[in-house]
Design a protein around this nucleic acid. Structure first.
Lengths: 272, 272
DNA sequence: ACCTGAACACCGTTCAAGT
DNA sequence: ACCTGAACACCGTTCAAGT
């Protein structure tokens, strides 16, 4: 009988209280990660292992549950040991984001450079980023939202390696410098908007301060919004994949226009 | 100067200079908000006043600095007093987001319904949202990222009132139900992607766990990225306003196409 | 009716100390 | 060389108590 019965709250947002007695549970038994055969988890600590554990932890418990102490527990170590490999929690998160974005390099469907033309390249890159977003829905808001290394680096393509790859592919395919840069900007905005909303719609707590709460469910007084009510079924249909495809093709078409004109896409008749 | 909250300093734990007795200094003098003539700050506490103070606080100190205790201090009250008006910190943030989004209703340039046609309406609405984003750069990531009331509500147009307004305007202007919904989705993605990136580029710590740190500045080994180096100046030019305009007009053009065809915008020849 | 004091169960982080 | 114990300065939140 740890706590007195919750006084109210129909949708109890009660902070998860761990059994204060059990020393095992100190780090939160609910957060123990299956670590393979006994002994496996004892591997030497290093930065890569820590980042990997953090990613796994966020994927399964949400960002807000990630605590230095709990991450240590998952790795079989006290929180303080992590500071030998990572300067602090903020930098840990930066490392996690970098790590996740770098997964793209291991993606066999996304080869650098444009062997089959720039449109093919941007297609594969976009789908690679989308795969990452869907694989780490709890993490993608972080990718979208952490301050980039430089002001002109735009999430989600937030590593210089990808910016370089993008720009060389385009300038090497007939884009002027100006239009390559403009294309980078448009492409980033497109990816960020679509993927952030797709990931959010998937119902994940796309939330910087995630409470681990379930879906907020429908709303109270829908009576005031007749059109919303009438279209509710249409609104609930998930067409993300097709919409992503369509918007991507539209964007590529626009960029092709820009490329052929060889000038700035803000020019009024680039899109007439 | 004045960041008095420094928690560390190698010199060990010499007794903090701040007088622990003084109730004034408890919340951290660095966060005291000028509250007009003496006595003004003592106004009766209520939910609206609390939300307003929270918005002001986030605008000037960043999200991560917002603490129940500090917010209480700003309002001349202990943190515990806030719980009489707000269930907890998470719900405070939800209220803040709702509050900020509702600023749109007070915007004289954004009237509901489409007196001058749907394109004019979507134009004004987009610019209204953009004004909000730029007015509250520290807050916009929260608007973008908090879980919406229902899965089909898409930030940044995250109030049912605006969804209703959007959908009735479009269905009343010749859009089929399907294309009105598709337009809502495309419009949301466009706004979210562009504004999140614009706000981030403005250099604000567009950061859920903002450290109050300065800009990360340029990068280390730029030598490996020759194209980035060559285009760095172009990359640093801020063309956000023009890019927003261009992308918005392009989107509206696409939607007009969809409207005239009266069918799904995913149809392949909507955009040829 | 409205606010506070004191307390609880956490945090991130430091540092001397153990092995 | 690598990890831990203990401590510090915070958090959010509860609840009985004050006014």
């Amino acid at each position: 009988m740890a706590r007195a019965a919750d006084p109210d709250e129909p949708a109890g947002s009660a902070p998860r209280t761990a059994d204060p007695d059990s020393p095992e549970a100190r780090g939160g038994a609910a957060f123990v990660v299956t670590s393979g055969p006994p002994g496996t988890g004892r591997a030497a600590l290093d930065r890569r292992r820590i980042l990997g554990a953090a990613i796994e932890f966020i994927d399964s418990h949400g960002l807000s549950a990630l605590t230095m102490r709990r991450l240590g527990a998952v790795l079989g170590v006290e929180a303080m040991a992590l500071y030998r490999y990572v300067p602090g929690r903020e930098q840990l998160l930066d490392g996690v984001v970098e790590s996740v974005v770098d997964e793209l390099y291991g993606d066999p469907d996304v080869h650098m450079e444009a062997a089959h033309g720039w449109q093919d390249y941007l297609q594969r890159l976009a789908h690679g980023v989308r795969r990452i977003a869907l694989a780490h829905p709890e993490l993608f808001p972080l990718v979208a939202t952490r301050p980039p290394a430089a002001p002109w680096v735009r999430p989600p393509l937030r590593s210089l390696r990808w910016v370089e790859s993008f720009l060389t592919a385009l300038t090497g395919s007939g884009f002027s410098d100006e239009s390559a840069v403009a294309a980078y900007r448009a492409y980033s905005s497109f990816l960020l908007g679509h993927l952030l909303l797709e990931v959010s719609q998937k119902g994940v707590a796309i939330n910087a301060a995630d409470t681990g709460e379930a879906t907020p469910a429908v709303d109270p007084d829908l009576g005031e919004y007749p059109t919303v009510v009438r279209l509710q079924e249409l609104l609930s249909v998930d067409e993300s994949a097709a919409e992503f495809e369509e918007a991507l093709e539209n964007l590529l078409g626009r960029l092709e226009h820009v490329r052929r004109e060889g000038r700035d896409p803000r020019d009024p008749d680039s899109f007439t």
